[in-house]
Every structure is written in C-alpha cells, then in structure tokens.
Write a protein that binds this DNA or RNA. Sequence first.
DNA 1: AAACAGACGGAACACGTTTTCCTAAAGACC
DNA 2: GGTCTTTAGGAAAACGTGTTCCGTCTGTTT
Lengths: 331, 331
Amino acid sequence: MASRGPVVPRITDVAALAGVSTSTASKALNDTGQLREETRERVRRAAEQLGFTPDGRGRALSSGRSYTVGLITTDSSGRFSIPIMQGAEDALSAGEMALVLCDTRDDALRESHYLRSLVARRVDGIIVTGRRTEPRAPIDVPMPVVYAFSPSTDPADTSVVMDEYGGATSAVRHLLSLGRRRIAHVTGPATHRSAVVRAAATAAAAGDALIGEPLHGEWSERWGRHAVDVLVRTGDVDAISCGSDQIARGVCDRLRELGRAVPDDVAVTGFDNWSVMALASRPPLTTVDLRLEELGRRTARLLLEMIGGAAPSGVVSLPTELVPRESTLGT
Amino acid sequence: MASRGPVVPRITDVAALAGVSTSTASKALNDTGQLREETRERVRRAAEQLGFTPDGRGRALSSGRSYTVGLITTDSSGRFSIPIMQGAEDALSAGEMALVLCDTRDDALRESHYLRSLVARRVDGIIVTGRRTEPRAPIDVPMPVVYAFSPSTDPADTSVVMDEYGGATSAVRHLLSLGRRRIAHVTGPATHRSAVVRAAATAAAAGDALIGEPLHGEWSERWGRHAVDVLVRTGDVDAISCGSDQIARGVCDRLRELGRAVPDDVAVTGFDNWSVMALASRPPLTTVDLRLEELGRRTARLLLEMIGGAAPSGVVSLPTELVPRESTLGT
DNA sequence: AAACAGACGGAACACGTTTTCCTAAAGACC
DNA sequence: GGTCTTTAGGAAAACGTGTTCCGTCTGTTT
C-alpha cells in the first residue's frame, strides 16, 4: 500500500452521511434490492453532496469484469489504424468501456510485453489490428479477441475485414458505366496482398477493357507519375484505375503536365478515400472509401457480443463505398 | 458478481501448489519480506507452472494506484495528436503504465463524460491535448494533469508546448544565411494563434528582408497556389517562408507551373515536417520539425513525476528542429 | 389476538492482492 | 541452560465495491 492518492469519497462515506449501511447505499445507487424511494433519494442526495463516484477498481474486482478492452496495433500512426481506433472507441465508450492503446511498432517483443500487460489487467477483450491486409498469426490469450483489417490466419477466429475485391470492382464498373473501354491499372507492390486483390478484381471486372497487365510499383505519387509516362509510351488509354489515392494523385499531376485533361481525355480513380490525397488532388479523386471507422465500430460491437458470451463469428467482410468526384465526372 | 470470466490462476493457487500461505507467495514473487531463497524459488516455479499473472485489479486496489493514465484528445485523427500519443505511450509503457484513449471530438458533453469515466477508474493522471495551440480551459479533477500542445490558461498548471516562435525564426535565419533578402510569408488564418505567432517571429527575424505583410489564408495547398499568384503580381521575391507544409507544397507546385525554379529562383520553407507533404512535394521541403513525439514523451515524463509527488512545473517550451531539404538547398 | 406475508435494511462475505503485524523456531551469548 | 536476537513464514486486515442471506418491522388476514 503506497502513499494514498487523492482523497475521494468512498461509498462508506456516502452511507454514513445518509445514515444507512454501505450495502444499502450500494443498492440505492445501483437501483437494486428493495428500498423505499425515500431512502434511495436520501442516499442519492448524499452521494451528490459528496461528489461520490464509485471506484472502478473495486467495482472491477467485485464484478469480475474490468470494463476495459485493449487495442493492439502494429502502428498507430498508420492512416488505416486511426479511423479504426476512432470507430472502436466510439462504439466502446457508448458501453462505458475504456480503450487502452498498445502500439507494438511491429516488434514481436513489444507485442508480447503488451499482451502480458493486457492479460494482467484482466482486460475484457482485445482488438488486434495491423498495417496491412495480410493475415496474421492469432494471439493466445484467455479472453475474447477480434481481428480488424488484418484477419487472423485461423478462420475460426473473429476477423473483420473490408471487401477490397468488391471495392475495386465497383470502381471499374463506374468507369465502364461512363463509357470508358481502355482501362489501365496502376497499383502497389505485387508483394502486397491489397495490390494483388485489387488488381485481380480490376482485371475480372474490366474484361476486354483492361489494357495491358496491372502495373506494380510503390504506393507513392512518384510511381503514379512514372506510370503515366510508361502508359503514354505504350498506347492510348481513356481511364486509369489506381490502387491508392497517392498513386492516383501522381497520375493526375503527370497527366496534367502532359496536357491530358482529366477526366475528359483520361478518367482516374483512386482507392482509400484518404482525404489528404483525394481532395487535394487536381481534380479531386473519385475513389473507394474503405469505411474504416465503420469497420472499427463493427469490430468493437462484435467484441462486445463475444464478451457477452457470443461465439466467434469467423471472417466478416464489410462493403466499401464508391465516392464519385471530378476525376471521373468532370465539373 | 456477474458470470465469472475466463478462469485464470490466482495467487492462492500458486501458494497452494508451493505449499505456502498466500502472503508468502506474494512476498516471494515481489522480492519483499524475509524468505529463504529455496522457498522463493519454489513459489516462482509454481507460478510459472500455472502461468500465473497477478491480477491488476486486486493490485490496483491494494496499492492505491491504477497504473493507468488517461489521454484526452479533442481529435485523435489530427496529425498533431497522433505523434504526441505515440510519444506518451512510449514513455508510459516503459513505466508499466497503460494509456486509455478518450477522443472528445471537440464536444464538451463528451469531454465531461470521459472525465467522469477517468475519475471513476481512478486513473493516476491525465494528459490533455488539443488540436490547436490556443490555450484551453483547465479541467477539474482530483489527480495530476499535464497539458500538451495546447496549454492550460492557468500558468500554474503543467503545460508542454513547442517553441513555434523559435521554429519560425530558425527558418528565416536559414533563408538569410543562404543570401535571400526578399522574403515573403504565406500562412494560415489570422484567427489561429499558430499563424500569428509564426508570422510575428518571421517578421522579427527577417527585418528589412520581409516583403509586404504576411499573407493570411487557409491551411491548404490551394491557398499556397493562390498566394503565389498574388506575390508574382506584387513584385519579385527570392524566398517564401510558409506557415505549413501544405501551403508550401501548393507554393512549390504553382511556382513550377509558372516556370520559376525552386530553389534557384525562389527558395521555399514549410512548417510541421508532415512527411506526407514535405517529402512528396517537388522538390522536398525544407521545414521545421515540431518534434511532437518528443513532446509526448516529455509530457508523459512530467506526468509521471507529478504522480510521484512532484509539483506542477508551469509551461515548458520545447525546441523545434530545422530540417533542410532541396526546397532551399537545391539538389 | 394470532398468524402470516411482504417490505425494508443490515451483517457478512466475495473479488485478488499487498502489507502489517505476530509467532514459532533457530541460533547467539553469558 | 536460560535469555535475547534474528530468521522464516503465517494470520489478518486493508483497499472499495456488489451481493447474498437473514432478521426485523409493519400491515393485513383469519
């Protein structure tokens, strides 16, 4: 027992002031047991007067729950993790649950350290999220776990992912519906699952309208600019579907520099709806919104259900949303 | 007492297995009290065998501390909050403290909700961080608080801020040292403290070299581009110091479109070192790094000291760091 | 008036740990 | 050999809450 922290009133103080026992005070404040309304009111008044707030630690111990969930993220700086965090935090705070943040920085040592810490805190459940969509090894803890964004390699675990395949498909369908028939695809490294999935969906949806093979490079504006140079040399295209908004922005910049009008000469689509890129691009990008905040919310809700006793629900795939803007529609 | 959660071994189980009392087991595992080494070892082995992890809730109750700090942020999505969070989390996790995340979304109702929740959890301390550098009203809680990024209006509180004035000064000195003598300043809205402070520092450091008044607009690439049009009409400049990297990127883009070489004709500096902007800009931006992660770390350390009993230390101002890149140095 | 049911509230224990005493055994000293 | 000190370990209380169980008191019924 270290030095006592700040002195805050305990339930016994409230009980004493109201002239009842602690158990009665507890019942009054929690609306349980059989008490006269007058007694309840007296206790409530005493609690108010003292500014009493029940101690979560005692409560946790008594209830067997900590009303806390852990969020393990491989990099919290990632633009993917943040909206997920926000969504999860939103859904959890509604249920009076707190979120403790653990950023492993992709370090296995850190991860095991944090896992021990979360287990020690008797967290009610854990959300695991990654930086990439590659499946990851499940964690071994004695409490419910939900994987978000990067699913568990064990299909029996609960994982929430977004439907990238469907997203890429919707982008291509959009281009086709606008009459584009010579579509190129520029995306990230072939070593990234996202790039491969999006490319496969694009090829399948475009069919004969796909020009050449998908071009793989880095997830950068620079690569987008360079890819345009390559495409221009190859032949003519009337649309470029990109694997990310960064690439798409680079594509737009280079097209403008070459005197090709977007979208009149070439329509461009992005992916991710990363506002910093999609809105700052000239013109603003038609893109696929991943609805990551919804993904976070859904993840948290599934976790809450599992904490409530529900069984794991396997892999849940969430729809994306096409956001049409000037890069395909014009002004 | 709700349904029992996952069954994990308690210290009594360890004690029973080792054939000692619980108090002895506790002492053995915590290296306190007077025990034979052989007994200690026996207990340790039993703990290991059972996979025992002490329950943080019981521990918190007994120690009077929760080993948890709250982080109240007005928007966790902000690119300023995130590095601060990371730094804080880094410094805290080293001390076995967990960080619970509270995103108020700039809503007073949410804020008071979270404050109640944190007080209920008997958090050991709270970090308050904002989206802007404007001072904010202090919070009233019975535990140590440190304000980061946006200081408390009460100078007696502990606040950690960055030295924007010094940062802007260093950028201008850098331009002067490169021989630039006709410097314009393009920055954000005059209603933002950051813009005003940075502009004042720029004017003071530039002296006669400052061309015209600081140009106030939005924190956007679009405004940067537009400001270049204005400046070109006004007269000739050989350097533009910008209030943010976004503005600077817009400035660079427009200068290139107008055929002005950066930095040969006009040198450009940014502010914030937001890599998405600073590195993607053509050319990459010389800019002022705010060292937000260090700010977060420092904040957390000060909080830990206050939790340990130290007195508030008033406003602490942290130095920024000039990062020279091609937009002033050339290739 | 006696028996009974129901309303009300308190005593005690549980949750899991740490810590403060306290006791018994073993050794040291005269 | 008796007293004193040291060592090793246990019993009990503390932290703050929720809940179970039980006793009392009031009012109703026969």
